[in-house]
Amino acid sequence: MSTSRSSASSKSGARQSKVTVNSQWKAYLQHHRVTAKDSLIRLLKSPGSSIMTWLVLGIALSLPMTLFVSLENVKQLSRVWDQSSQISVYLKKGVVPRLAQGLSDEIQALPQVTSAYYISPELALKEFSAATGLSDVVEGLESNPLPGVISVVPSLASQDAKAMEKLQDQLMHFVQVESVQLDLLWVKRLYQFMELGQRMVWALALLLGLAVLLIIGNTIRLSIENRRDEILVVKLVGGTDAFVRRPFLYTGIWFGLGGGLIAWFLLSLGLYWLSGPVEQLIGLYGSEFVLSGLGVKDSLLLICDGVVLGWLGAWLAVSRHLARINP
């Protein structure tokens, strides 16, 4: 009885599992599509907990981005202020106007300088008496106490603190120059603050990114526990690790995408809410500053961050917990 059966077996053996590479590739893509859709539907089927998770992720993602946008705006504002920063080059006594004008032209020719103009001691005294109303006092002076000054406006590219200092050094080297004064201290402080701000944004982004990873990791861990039976069966009938992982990775991606979108929405809403008062405030200072929002690039970056963090969080959870479920 058994011998007649064994002769038939070779035929059936050849027939089994005829899967071409092409159809396998198609099925692979199809499985990705189906899994992505299924994972989303699963999330939407328990809207309560999913929305809670999305909101938490959205808030966690929006915080560092809010600081980032604020910092970008302060930077932009400081650029407006920088334009008013001038360098005063005080000349030595007895430098004749012709030489002083020549030096002014020389400074003007420097690449880091937008404009330089010479103010003679006489002109300076006239301006001083006009501005202060102390013309009587000025007239009583025996000689003009003011030195000649060249007022220098540095170019935009050389407006950070380092470049300004370098320019100051360069100007000091001219023999006719007595001293160079620039109101650098507040520029320095501002840059220090911005540097500090930037680091704080990074630290916060790092911490909250970690929080996002943990939130997603924990959520995925729970969903792995909930689908334990399914994982066992899939592994028993020959599912590879990648196959088992896929739905959870998509769940992570959906969580991240939703979180990113919510963060973007919160941020846009906040900026819209603030833009009126901020522009009015800035307008009082006569500046043309406009509150800059999230550009297309930043928006995409924010949402991509969410997706990448979601995927990574899911990956971490899956690699930790899936290996423990073995039939």
């Binding site: 899967v19 159809s23 099925a27 499985h31 066992l232 069966v233 899939v234 009938v237 590879t240």
Partner: peptide, 25 residues
Amino acid sequence: QLLFDRSVFENVALPLRISGYSSRD
């Protein structure tokens, strides 16, 4: 070891989905 969250069809189809069969096959 059946999965009760899906139809009879899907339960039986599982090994084929894993092996990468086209939907018609």
